[in-house]
């Protein structure tokens, strides 16, 4: 028998309560989701059971403390505006999504690649395997990329994606989100995540968002409506900063006491 939303709700609540209790008892805060998160069914066979093996980041020759670089040849001007990639304009609520890419010391991560992908306003991806019977938009592919500027800032023009159903359990719906793929100055800072919109009623039902069991960490995935970013007669503005985890060779050098 297919799992219902209330089955999943119970699992989500139990895991959240267990986490809150552990933190209250002195356990460390978890900034990232646990790879083993049963309410998200696909995680069951796809997470390692052995503990991760620690690599000492003290050696600057460790390959992962450096990382790939990207430049102007890797993007075109049109890549950051998802509303001008076709002959006509896509249907939907036009918006600007902007923010800064930072490391954990608050320093801007400059000139790095940010890639995004998203569903259209009806909640449909322009992906062949997508089976949600919502209309495709011939004027929207939902893929963008850009390089961060000298302040670490990025900026996309796009339309607001719709929520969509998925097969995790009966009546499973994803809250509206944009997928982000981000590089830092080191391979260890690599991040793929999702940005959400304020006050979505689907948050509490979604095992993917809830796989982040820490409330404050979940809140960091939600963009802020920013009226100053809204453009008169044109678009709504959302602001979302991204903070990269993980060590890098430059961090070790610059972090060294003088």
């Amino acid at each position: 028998m297919a799992l219902t939303q209330s089955d999943i709700d119970v699992e989500i609540k139990d895991l959240r309560d267990a986490y809150d209790k552990a933190v209250a008892g002195g356990a460390p805060v978890r900034n990232h989701p646990s790879r083993d998160y049963p309410p998200y069914r696909s995680s069951l066979l796809r997470h390692p059971k052995q503990p991760l093996v620690a690599v000492d980041g003290g050696d600057p020759e460790t390959v992962e403390l450096s990382g790939p670089v990207f430049g102007v040849t890797d993007i075109t001007e049109h890549d950051s505006d998802l509303t001008i990639q076709h002959r006509g304009e896509p249907i939907g609520e036009r918006m600007t999504v902007s923010g800064r890419l930072l490391d954990r010391d608050g320093r801007p991560v400059r000139g790095q690649l940010i890639e995004i992908w998203q569903a259209n306003a009806a909640g449909r991806y322009a992906h062949l395997r997508e089976q949600h019977p919502a209309p495709l938009d011939p004027n929207f592919t939902g893929v963008g990329r850009t390089l961060t500027d000298d302040q670490g800032r990025y900026r996309f023009t796009t339309i607001k994606p719709g929520p969509y159903p998925w097969g995790n359990h009966m009546n499973a719906w994803r809250p509206a989100h944009i997928h982000f793929s981000v590089f830092g100055t080191a391979f260890t800072q690599r991040l793929i995540t999702q940005m959400y919109f304020p006050s979505d009623p689907l948050f509490r039902y979604d095992p993917i968002l809830q796989s982040v069991t820490d409330q404050a960490a979940r809140d960091r995935l939600i963009a802020t409506y920013q009226h100053d970013l809204s453009q008169p007669e044109f678009s709504m503005g959302y602001e979302w900063d991204i903070v990269l985890d993980g060590p890098s060779a430059t961090w070790i050098e610059e972090g060294r006491p003088a």
Binding site: N31, H32, P33, Y40, S42, S43, L102, D103, R104, D105, G106, E115, I116, W117, A119, Y125, A126, H127, L128, R129, E130, T141, G142, V143, H179, S181, L191, I192, T193, Q194, I208, L209, S211, V212, D214, A216, A217, R218, R220, L221, D241, I242, V243, L244, D245
Partner: peptide, 20 residues
């Protein structure tokens, strides 16, 4: 200074094929 808290990771999901 105080270190910023990192943005949590999320799954890549099934529909990245036309993007990445």
């Amino acid at each position: 200074s105080e270190r910023l808290l990192p943005t949590p990771s999320h799954t890549i999901g099934p529909f990245y094929g036309h993007a990445l």
